[in-house]
């Protein structure tokens, strides 16, 4: 039996509360607030408290899916990324870069958000970038 605690950051909203996962035998069993975290000081909202539920949910996507003929098909990452890139290029060529918008999220890190806007502005060539925590 092994039990450890892993500090992390809540992935639900832009507040970024510190959480602590209780991991028993490699499986996240419950979520606790990280008491020493400067942001939330040992408090969480209901979403933070329930983080372990979605991590362990059977409904989570574990592989990329590509829609073909109206049905989702399991694909490898390479196939999925090639497929997406090909179609973005097609849209950009036929309708111009402003036909594409990029939505990023509070659920990913600052760095990833930065990279997403870089992709939008430099690679695709549009200013259509937005974020759910742009309050």
């Amino acid at each position: 039996m092994n039990c450890k605690f892993v500090p992390s950051v809540c992935s639900y909203c832009g507040t970024g509360c510190g959480v602590l996962f209780e991991v028993i035998d490699g499986k996240i069993n419950s979520t606790l607030p990280l008491k020493s975290h400067p942001v939330n000081q040992g408090k969480l909202c209901i979403k933070g408290w329930s983080l372990h539920e979605y991590i362990n949910s059977y409904m989570r996507l574990k592989a990329p899916l590509v829609k073909e003929n109206g049905h989702f098909q399991k694909a490898t990452w390479d196939e999925a990324i090639t497929h997406a890139a090909k179609n973005f290029n097609r849209i950009k060529e036929t309708h111009g870069p402003d036909a594409i918008g990029v939505l990023v999220s509070a659920k990913v890190t600052n760095e990833e958000n930065y990279l997403a806007q870089k992709l939008a502005r430099a690679a695709i060539g549009t200013n259509n970038v937005d974020h759910c925590a742009r309050l």
């Binding site: 039996m1 092994n2 450890k4 605690f5 500090p7 990280l34 008491k35 020493s36």
Partner: peptide, 27 residues
């Protein structure tokens, strides 16, 4: 990482024991 957090010490991770702390924070 500067946080005092709970930990389960077992025979398999005896080497962790040197970091054993009695925390100011209560869990």
């Amino acid at each position: 990482d500067g946080h005092l957090i709970p930990h389960g010490y077992t025979l398999d991770n005896l080497e962790d024991l040197e970091n054993l702390k009695v925390s100011q924070h209560r869990y």
